[in-house]
Computed example of a mutant assay.
Amino acid sequence: MTHTTIAVLVGSLRSDSVNRQLAEVLRGQAPEDVSIEIIDGLGEVPFYNQDLDTPDDIPASAARLRDQVSRADRVLAVTPEYNGRMPAVLSNAIDWLSRPYGAGALVGKPFGVVGVTPTPYGGQWAHADAVRSAGIAGAKVVEDVTVSQSALEVDVLTDPDVLARLTNAVRVLVDYDAEQAAA
């Protein structure tokens, strides 16, 4: 059995964010062969600026982000939606992970996105933004992983059906074979 590491990018900086809590629930429910590593410190990563992204002097927080994602086998964004799009912190993380162009930390990594919002659509627009941006950055987007869940009428942290869909999404991401999918 192969061990898989998933780097999780949480699109909310709020300490008691439901999406942060959801990432922690998924980590706690991960199968034995899966490590879910929530990447902390996204709020410390400066907005992407090519002037800061030099071979000799990259900000430590950006270097740490790239290193953590580079070491992971898969990447999962767990994010809410802000004003009909992905949060700036997630967009910024993807920007840093997309560089250097063609060789960034996301290149070739299976990528999925899940999340909850207190809206009827559950964050679909933000999730579509994240999928598009990660795909452009070179990630292998696993479409069957996208779960956009409304939190209006259900406790997303305890509802068995919601948790089953999210846990299944993690399993699909883990089982994704990029080479087979390309064939």
Rank of each mutant, 00 (worst) to 15 (best):
A60K: 14
L9E: 00
L26F: 10
E81D: 10
N92L: 06
W96H: 03
P59M: 10
V18E: 10
F111C: 02
V8A: 08
T117D: 06
L65K: 11
A93G: 08
T117A: 13
P118T: 14
A30F: 10
V142T: 07
I6V: 14
G123N: 02
A63R: 11
D53E: 14
E24N: 09
T5L: 01
A72N: 06
V69Q: 01
V107K: 04
A72Y: 07
Y82A: 08
L26Q: 09
R85G: 15
D53S: 12
S70Q: 13
A183D: 15
G122T: 01
S17I: 08
D33N: 14
Q21M: 15
L173R: 01
A130W: 08
D175I: 12
D40L: 11
S15V: 13
P100K: 03
A151N: 06
N168E: 13
R14L: 13
G112N: 02
V170G: 01
V162G: 00
P59V: 07
H127L: 01
Q21R: 13
V114D: 10
A72I: 11
D67A: 15
V131F: 00
S148R: 01
A137F: 08
Q149W: 02
D67E: 15
I94Q: 05
G28P: 07
A183P: 13
D144K: 15
Q180R: 15
V147T: 01
A182T: 12
S35R: 14
L42W: 05
S15H: 13
G122N: 01
H3T: 10
V142C: 06
A105E: 04
A128H: 13
T119I: 11
Q50G: 12
L65G: 02
T117H: 04
N92T: 04
R132Y: 12
D177E: 09
A72H: 06
R20F: 08
R64Y: 04
T117R: 01
R14W: 12
T5V: 07
W125H: 14
L106H: 08
D161W: 06
P46K: 10
Y48L: 02
G108R: 13
V34R: 09
F111E: 00
L157H: 04
G104Q: 09
V114F: 11
V162K: 00
A7T: 10
R71D: 10
I94D: 05
Y82M: 04
Q29N: 15
L152M: 12
L9N: 08
I58Y: 07
R165Y: 03
Y48C: 00
D95Q: 07
R132S: 12
D155L: 06
V34Y: 09
S15M: 11
V75R: 02
G135L: 08
V162Y: 00
D159V: 00
L52Q: 12
L106G: 06
D129A: 00
L76T: 04
V69N: 04
Q50C: 00
R71T: 09
H3L: 06
L157D: 01
I136Q: 09
S61G: 03
L152S: 01
D177S: 07
P100Y: 07
R66H: 06
D144L: 13
A62K: 03
M1D: 12
D33L: 09
V142A: 05
W125T: 11
T146E: 00
I36N: 03
G104V: 09
V145Q: 02
L22K: 06
D67G: 13
E179I: 12
N19P: 11
